[in-house]
Computed example of a mutant assay.
Amino acid sequence: MSERPDPAATQLPAEGQPRVIDENTDLSTLTDQEIMKLMEGMDHQEDQMNKPLISTPVPLSVIRQEYEKGSTQILKKLDWLAENGWDQVWRARGDGDCFYRSFTLAYLVRVLHSNDSQLEANLAYENIQRALPAMEHCGFDKDLYEEFLDPLLALIRSFAEEGESTSTEYGIVQSLQDPERSNCIVVALRLITSSYIRTHSDLFSPFLLSPTTFLPLSTDDFCRSEVEPCGKEADHAQIMALAEALNVGIRIAYLDRSDLGSEADSVINWVEFGKDTSEQGRPLTLLYRPGHYDVVTKDVLPQV
């Protein structure tokens, strides 16, 4: 006797309410519109996987072209960024790890363009070393997290060594386009983030919510489900934890449809994380579009 589909999986939603389609859904019950939506999602995912993990910078005007027929608020925000010198965007692949990849690129470019790259590299190296005891305290395998950290530490050390090919913007991008190296760094940063949240649970517990149900999660559940697995997008809690763990300021320009402010400096909503986000503190600067992070800078485009 053939099995009947689970009624719960085939039941259509109330009128006007899209139903959730998952592995339990009987495919024979899909409408033409639902099939088209699934196919579009698969095409988008395949397109993302064909993009480089990190791209060389493009002019901000390229991003603007994507919105020319869209929201006027977003166009005005992009124009404000351009008028204030934010002239290039370094794109990260939209695979759920874009924040950590963008953080890595901005972190290394910050070292590269400091007045004393060797000193800045040493400070970055020390900040990472100070994060290690928390990882060990949380029970992460030392051999494992040191192995994941090694590619990032090697890149940082390269700034103190003359003649290293990574000591240019293009060299950094090339290094981060290598999947094995880039993915190791993503895992390492996720473990640093997780260990900071776990060891500061009193600070973070009010903000640890499920992104799907918006219900509170325990520190352990949040870190296991939303921080440590690759492909999980970062939100404010993860960003704040990584900024604090590595003692670096982060400023994120939110490119959304929110109303424009009346003041000249409030056209863009800059969200700040970390101890020093002033211009003198040279924070990492990212561009956020719903569900995605890239790096935005004022630097001159590299001559490749």
Rank of each mutant, 00 (worst) to 15 (best):
Y196A: 00
N183R: 11
A188E: 13
L209P: 06
L246Q: 09
A243L: 06
S258F: 06
P206K: 04
E244W: 09
D256M: 10
I252G: 01
P206E: 11
A253E: 00
L242N: 03
S258M: 07
V186H: 03
Q238R: 09
S201A: 14
Y196K: 01
M240L: 13
S182F: 06
C230Y: 07
Q177F: 02
F222S: 01
Y196S: 01
K232M: 14
Q238P: 00
L191E: 06
I197N: 02
I250S: 01
A243V: 10
A188D: 12
G231A: 07
D256G: 13
A243N: 05
T212Y: 04
I252P: 00
L191Q: 07
Y196F: 14
S218Y: 03
R181D: 08
D259G: 06
I192S: 01
A243M: 11
G231V: 05
E228Y: 09
S195I: 05
L215F: 12
S258T: 15
F204R: 01
L191D: 05
R198N: 02
L260Y: 07
C223L: 11
V186I: 13
D256A: 12
C223D: 00
S194I: 03
C223F: 05
S201T: 14
R190T: 02
I252A: 11
S258K: 07
S182V: 13
I197M: 05
A253C: 15
L203C: 09
P229G: 11
A243D: 01
R224G: 00
M240Y: 10
A245H: 02
D221A: 14
Q177A: 05
E244I: 04
F222D: 00
I192F: 06
L209H: 13
I250K: 03
P216E: 12
D259P: 12
C184A: 09
P179V: 13
Q238A: 13
E244G: 00
D259E: 15
S194G: 04
L260S: 04
L217D: 02
F207P: 01
L191Y: 07
L208Y: 03
E228F: 08
F207T: 11
D220A: 11
F214H: 10
R257A: 06
A241R: 02
L215A: 14
S210E: 05
I192W: 03
H236L: 08
S182W: 07
D221F: 07
I239G: 00
S205C: 12
L255F: 04
L176Y: 05
E180V: 10
N183L: 08
L203Q: 13
F222G: 04
L203V: 15
E233W: 14
S210P: 00
F214I: 05
E226T: 08
T199H: 01
A245I: 02
R181F: 04
P229F: 12
D220H: 12
D259I: 07
L208C: 02
L242T: 06
V186L: 03
L209G: 00
I185P: 08
S201C: 15
D256T: 14
Y254L: 13
S210N: 15
R257Q: 15
Y196Q: 05
A188N: 11
P179E: 15
A241H: 08
I197W: 07
T212C: 00
R190S: 09
L217F: 08
A243G: 06
V186G: 04
E180L: 15
L217C: 08
V227N: 04
K232Q: 13
A241C: 10
N247R: 15
S182H: 02
I192C: 01
I250G: 03
I250L: 05
S195C: 04
